[in-house]
């Protein structure tokens, strides 16, 4: 199973600002000067070693994740990241006989569906899009988003065939040999987590979720849903302190993700749905502090914690 991040930001697409880019350029130049690098090849080699935080970006597109397993093309959420995913599908996968594309929605807040009108494969009549959602009326919600007052192309003007499947809560569905189970999460208007099981590997996508009562009796069902996941993508939009003060805003923190991961024996934890008010260095700082927290509280555990970064691929 391959998991690729196309959109990792929460709430609203967040391009890098000129000030942020200039800040990165100055940092890189300072380091080049400190290392006394003078010839261009050496400078290029050094720049290639830098992380996306230092010499690129964590990413400003909103939620979209691609999963490939058993030759199936499965997408989770249609935030602004789905535009670039659509372009990649057109370049690498599009065939004359058409594609079957399976799209699972956590919920229909803007940051999770705003990219769909720009999803190129949706315009090809030979393609079939299969939409899955725990919410009712998904077709109507997409039609509203593309009402002529808000967007010039209506849903039914996008040429692909479309199928809408409302999922029973806590149920599983098979796409080929890939099993996908949903799990309701606490978020304004409701959200759904998804667990993908295939070939003995498992991926859990649990974004847009708040955990107000962290006692064991209240979280045990979540822990079971996350149990033994090879990769858990977790809503870490807020710091722990922010999450408490923004009660009922529907988001969580990295520290809760680490505690859950340890309890559920998760192997790798990806911090996701990054706060749009934070720059890349601030988000990286949250990661560093989260790793410190894990090392203090669980020194014997081998949980890997990392940032979901646009373009990052994880093979399970």
């Amino acid at each position: 199973m391959k998991v690729k991040f196309w959109g990792v930001r929460g709430s609203i697409p967040t391009p890098q600002s000129s000030v942020q880019i200039k800040q990165k350029i100055k940092r890189i130049l300072r380091k080049i000067s400190e290392k006394q690098l003078h010839d261009l090849p050496a400078i290029n080699r050094y720049i290639d070693t830098l992380s996306p935080v230092e010499a690129g970006t964590i990413g400003g597109n909103t939620a979209c994740i691609e999963v490939r397993a058993d030759n199936q093309l499965i997408i989770f959420d249609m935030g602004s990241g789905i535009k670039n995913l659509g372009n990649a599908i057109m370049k690498n996968d599009q065939k004359t006989e058409g594609l079957d594309i399976h799209i699972f929605l956590t919920h229909t807040h803007w940051d999770h569906m705003i990219g769909f009108p720009f999803f190129s494969p949706a315009f090809f009549p030979s393609n079939t899009l299969h939409f899955y959602s725990g919410h009712p009326n998904l077709k109507e919600r997409l039609e509203v988003q593309q009402d002529y007052r808000f967007f010039p192309v209506a849903l039914n003007q996008m040429g692909s065939k479309k199928e809408f499947i409302q999922l029973e809560h806590n149920s599983s569905i098979n796409i080929g040999n890939v099993k996908i189970t949903n799990f309701p999460l606490y978020h304004p208007g409701g959200s759904f987590g998804y667990r993908v099981d295939y070939g003995g590997k498992s991926f859990v996508y649990a974004t847009d979720s708040e955990y107000k009562d962290l006692s064991g009796k209240n979280t045990k069902n979540h822990i079971e849903f996350f149990r033994h996941a090879d990769l858990l993508v977790f809503d870490a939009q807020y710091t722990f302190e922010e999450a408490i003060h923004k009660e009922d805003w529907g988001h969580s923190s990295a520290l809760v993700g680490i505690d859950f991961s340890v309890q559920a024996d998760v192997k790798r934890l990806a911090l996701f749905h990054h706060e749009p008010e934070r720059d890349d260095f601030e988000i990286e700082n949250i990661l560093k502090k989260s790793i410190d927290y894990g090392n203090i509280n669980y020194p014997d555990k081998k949980l890997e914690v990392f940032l979901a970064i646009e373009g990052l691929e994880v093979n399970l």
Binding site: E241, L255, D292, Y293
Partner: peptide, 15 residues
């Protein structure tokens, strides 16, 4: 010290 650091990481020292 470790627990104090957890409070610092969580942003709770001001509280």
């Amino acid at each position: 010290d470790d627990i104090k650091e957890v409070f610092e990481i969580a942003g709770l020292l001001p509280i």
